[in-house]
Amino acid sequence: MQSLKNVNYTNGQLSMLVMLRVLIGWHFLFEGLTKVSKSGWTSAGYLLDSKGWFSGIFIWMAESPGILKFIDFMNVWGLFFIGLALMIGLFSRLAAIGGMALLAMYYLSHPPLAGLEYGAPGEGTYLLVNKNLIELFALAVLFVFPTSQIIGVDRFLYISKYKRNPDPQLA
């Protein structure tokens, strides 16, 4: 986290970034939690509904029981831990990358292209840009403007790492 040394936020910037991190974390964690608590949840239907550029790959995933099991596991617990990590601010940058990867999969499996219609009804109308893509870039923003070393559990790791060389931003 050496690169963080030069990060210097105003209170307003810091508050909003932390807020954004917690909100995205909440979204991920709750999605994960509902899937964890619902035994037998599977992404099969969602994957089978894939359209656009890479639909072949996603449908293939859904049709191979072994791969589907893996995808389901990674998705459910990925959502859960990424959400938790973003909320409490632990390994937040890693979580941001993981979250971006998941969102990229959702985006690529259901790209909002002209003329494509999906089974799961969407709550808006989109062209190329949809909420998955926006959330993905919001995580990218959080990746380049990290906050968990200031507000978050990462602060403890950060302090122990730099305790011999105190950092001004911990003030």
Partner: peptide, 24 residues
């Protein structure tokens, strides 16, 4: 090397997790 303020700031967002789990 940790002050009370460090601990507060480090755990500032944890209550939100509690809120989420309560809501869930």
């Amino acid at each position: 090397g940790m002050s009370r303020r460090d601990i507060l700031k480090g755990l500032a967002t944890v209550p939100a997790v509690g809120g989420l789990f309560y809501g869930a």
